[in-house]
Design a protein around this nucleic acid. Structure first.
Lengths: 233, 233
DNA sequence: CTTCCTTATAGTTTATTTGACTACAAGTAT
DNA sequence: ATACTTGTAGTCAAATAAACTATAAGGAAG
């Protein structure tokens, strides 16, 4: 979100930007993808990946392009959060930013800092601090959305590896919703949804009884995405 | 959303606008507020109330100001829908619009066409057609949001008069969700929420047994707004 | 190889919530 | 007085949720 060069100015919208909140999950922690800026007024500070919009692209396209340019991540489903429009949110001029968010499996993507980003990395959400501009607020709204969504749609699964145990899934819910759950009840409820396909495999290299591995049933997944569910637990 | 005059250009953002989807409810029908444009390329066509954003105001403020200028409605709670960013959505130039929506009691507000609006009026949602630009899409997204929300938060009450009967409330839900409900069950469920305060009054001038009137319990209302509920019926 | 420990998984029990109904009460209109 | 309409109360079986107990399957320690 540095100021555009004169050459770029012709092709971009002047007072709108994009910022992306990308969530991942690793070792029981919810993480978010940040970039360290390599130039401009926020040089060397960390913030959400984002930038300017070309006049010829939709904001959805811009979000995907920017994410690719800055972090190397491509072809993910980004959902719009909302616009952030405090007149003073950006110090150099009046700029409204449109927030996007996504959930991805960290393991599926290689990070590669590009364009104006000097560095890209995952940070535990609970430990993020000192983001540029109003990015802390955008992250917070993204987190709120994630929490609301995960109770009503089977989106959390995007954060887990292909094959996972029921306990891993439960821990994911516990981490995101910030509350403890009952193993037998969780198991019963999620299995009844028919959303998981049991595999003929088990965990390996664990020092206790190995749990069965599961993966999604993409069909039920689609149905539930549309119809929603209630995952209060 | 006509093009700004040169004098205005200094003070407004060039490629962003606001559009508002205002829902009301009357005689069993869900209605939406539209304005007939008095000037510009969409002269004499109907569309959502909206317009340009001053550089010094947030989009929330802009939405409220524009609504007041165009329709005379003021001081309502407008919630942001999302940004609409199709590069071709606005014929004259590249303009992204930020949609807002609100639910209000029609009876509480007097309409008064102002600024660039030649006329303001309520239209039954089911009968709206031929809106300018992509306003049909914005309305559709607003409606979707309304349907989702009304199942999870007690927002529908904003559409009813101060005092109302349970059947009126149920009809509101039926109209918005497009599905029939069971009277006794609806009654039981909603009363148990403790959201309604029974009044010592009854309907008047009806040609059948008069129903008891209720109003909200603002405290429970606040609690439920934060905590949410599940109003599937 | 037996015992202990940890985690996985199955099952029980009780209270609560739903959904579909029935029944009756309270008014208006004829 | 009677029929008709809508409001309100209550019943009952099925489904769900929450808390809990019990057992199985492994590895680790002795």
């Amino acid at each position: 979100m540095n100021n555009p060069s004169p050459a770029e100015k012709a092709a971009i919208l002047e007072s709108i930007t994009i910022d992306c909140v990308i969530f991942g999950f690793k070792a029981g922690n919810l993480e978010v993808l940040l970039v360290r800026h390599g130039e401009g007024i926020s040089k060397d500070k960390w913030g959400l990946p984002g930038g300017w919009i070309y006049k010829t692209e939709s904001t959805d396209d811009a979000a995907n392009r920017l994410l690719l340019e800055l972090t190397g991540i491509k072809d993910i489903y980004l959902e719009q959060l909302r616009a952030f429009s405090d007149p003073d949110r950006f110090p150099l001029s009046r700029v409204i930013t449109i927030g996007y968010y996504a959930l991805i499996k960290e393991e599926d993507y290689d990070l590669k800092a590009g364009a104006t980003a000097a560095e890209v990395a995952w940070f535990k959400v609970s430990q993020v601090k000192d983001l540029i501009y109003d990015h802390a607020q955008i992250l917070e709204i993204g987190l709120k959305r994630l929490r609301r969504r995960i109770k009503q749609e089977p989106i959390g699964f995007n954060l887990l590896p292909q094959k996972f145990t029921l306990l891993q899934l439960m821990h994911l819910y516990e981490e995101i919703l910030g509350k403890e759950m009952d193993k037998p009840n969780f198991r019963r409820k999620i299995l009844k949804m028919n959303l998981l396909t049991p595999l003929n495999e088990k965990e390996k290299d664990v020092s206790h009884r190995a749990a069965k591995l599961y993966q999604f049933n993409p069909e039920t997944y689609q149905q539930l995405l549309e119809k929603g569910f209630n995952f209060e637990f």
